[in-house]
C-alpha cells in the first residue's frame, strides 16, 4: 500500500515538467524515507536524479519498498489536469499495474482521480559516488537559464571556466563568439540573488548547450542553482526543492581525444 499526499501539488507538476523532455520512461523508487528516480537520457550523455523526502509530504505511507515504471510524458499529461493550487495524492496497491493520481481543490469542492497504466522498464542504475569537486558555483537559477538560452543562439557548446576571477561561460559559432563572465557577488539584498564561487582549483570544461538548456526547465523549482565541476567528472547541475529534496542533472563533458 502506497499513499503520498502532497499539499503543494504544483511542486510535482514542476518536477515533471523539468525532466519529461530529457527522459521518456523511468522507475520511481518508493521507500519509507521518500521517493527517488534515476534515469539517463536515451543517448546516455545526461542523467537525472530526483529525490523527494517523505518529510515534505503531509501524509506519507509506503509499507514496503516498491518501484513503479512510468512514462513521464503520460504522467505529465495527467498532472497537467491538476490545478496549481490542488493537493495531489499518489496511490498504489501492491501488485497493481496502475497508479492513481488524486487531485483535490483547496476548498475540497472538486476531487478528481486519474488512473495511469504502469510499465516494465529495464533501467540502468549507475553508482554515483560522492565526489570532491574542484569548483562549485551557486547562482540565481534565472540567470543561469538566461545565459544558456543566450549562448545557444550563437553556438552549440559552452565552455564553463572557473578561476578566482569568476565563472566564464563561452561559446563560438558561425556568426561569432560570446563570453559571459560572472564575478562572485555576495553583497545583494536577497541571498538567492548572490553568485558564490567556491574554488579549490581552476577548472574549464566543455558541454553541449542543448542539454544545459533542457536542465533549465527546472528553474521554477528553485531560485538558485548549483553547478559542480571537476575535470574528470560529469558536471552536476542541482536545483534544490525547498525542505524536500532535489533534482540533479549530470552531464558528461565533451573532451579531446
Amino acid at each position: 500500500m502506497l499513499e503520498l499526499r502532497l499539499v503543494q501539488g504544483s511542486l510535482l507538476k514542476k518536477v515533471l515538467e523539468s525532466i519529461k523532455d530529457l527522459v521518456n520512461d523511468a522507475n520511481f523508487d518508493f521507500s519509507s524515507s521518500g521517493f527517488s528516480l534515476q534515469s539517463m537520457d536515451s543517448s546516455h550523455v545526461a542523467l537525472v536524479a530526483l529525490l523527494l523526502k517523505s518529510e515534505g509530504f503531509e501524509h506519507y505511507r509506503c509499507d514496503r519498498n516498491t518501484s513503479m515504471g512510468m512514462n513521464l510524458g503520460n504522467m505529465s499529461k495527467m498532472l497537467k489536469c491538476a490545478g496549481n493550487d490542488d493537493i495531489i495524492t499518489i496511490k498504489g496497491d501492491d501488485g497493481s499495474d496502475t497508479v492513481t493520481f488524486m487531485f483535490e481543490s483547496p476548498t475540497q469542492d472538486k476531487i478528481a482521480d486519474f488512473e495511469m497504466k504502469l510499465m516494465d522498464i529495464d533501467s540502468e542504475h549507475l553508482g554515483i559516488p560522492e565526489a570532491e569537486y574542484h569548483a562549485i558555483v551557486k547562482m540565481p537559477s534565472a540567470e543561469f537559464a538566461r545565459i544558456c538560452k543566450d549562448l545557444a543562439s550563437i553556438g552549440d557548446t559552452v565552455v564553463i571556466s572557473v578561476t578566482k576571477e569568476g565563472v566564464k561561460f563561452s561559446t563560438r559559432g558561425d556568426i561569432g563568439t560570446a563570453n559571459i563572465v560572472l564575478r562572485q557577488n555576495t553583497t545583494v539584498d536577497k541571498p538567492e540573488d548572490a553568485t558564490v564561487i567556491e574554488m579549490n582549483e581552476p577548472v574549464s570544461m566543455t558541454f553541449a548547450l542543448r542539454y544545459m538548456n533542457s536542465f533549465t526547465k527546472a528553474t521554477p523549482l528553485s531560485n538558485t542553482v548549483t553547478i559542480s565541476m571537476s575535470p574528470d567528472l560529469p558536471v552536476v547541475v542541482e536545483y534544490k526543492i525547498a525542505e524536500m529534496g532535489y533534482v540533479r542533472f549530470y552531464l558528461a563533458p565533451k573532451m579531446e581525444e
Binding site: 550523455v45 542523467l47 542504475h125 557548446t157 553541449a208 560529469p234 558528461a252 565533451k254 573532451m255
Partner: peptide
Amino acid sequence: RVFQKSMFDFYQEY
C-alpha cells in the same frame, strides 16, 4: 577532435 563522453565513461552500472 572533441568527443562527447557518455555517462558510462565515468560511472559503473549496478
